[in-house]
Amino acid sequence: MKKILLIMSVLTTGTLAAQTPPARKVLLQQALPGISVETVKMDEITFAPGQGAPVHHHPCEVYGYVVSGQILYQPAGEPAQLLHAGDSFREAAGREISVFKNAQNDQPATFIAVYLLRKDQPSIIINK
Results as ranks from 00 to 15, higher is better:
50 G>E: 01
95 R>W: 05
54 P>Y: 01
70 Q>E: 12
53 A>L: 11
115 Y>K: 01
98 S>M: 10
62 V>G: 00
50 G>K: 02
127 N>A: 10
102 N>I: 00
42 M>W: 03
85 A>N: 03
92 A>Y: 04
116 L>P: 01
117 L>E: 00
126 I>N: 13
93 A>Y: 02
110 T>A: 07
61 E>S: 04
105 N>H: 15
103 A>N: 11
82 L>A: 08
91 E>C: 01
2 K>D: 12
97 I>C: 02
30 Q>K: 13
110 T>Y: 05
65 Y>R: 02
105 N>E: 13
92 A>L: 10
91 E>N: 03
34 G>Q: 15
34 G>T: 09
93 A>G: 11
71 I>V: 13
26 V>E: 14
50 G>Y: 01
114 V>D: 01
46 T>R: 08
103 A>L: 09
95 R>Y: 02
9 S>L: 13
113 A>V: 07
28 L>K: 11
67 V>K: 10
80 A>W: 11
117 L>K: 04
3 K>C: 10
20 T>N: 13
91 E>Q: 09
7 I>G: 05
27 L>F: 10
109 A>V: 02
80 A>Q: 12
86 G>S: 07
73 Y>K: 00
68 S>G: 06
99 V>M: 05
86 G>H: 08
123 S>K: 08
61 E>L: 04
118 R>Y: 08
30 Q>T: 12
27 L>Y: 10
66 V>K: 01
1 M>L: 13
50 G>W: 00
106 D>F: 11
84 H>Y: 14
40 V>I: 15
65 Y>L: 09
37 V>H: 02
103 A>H: 05
116 L>T: 00
104 Q>V: 13
105 N>K: 15
85 A>F: 05
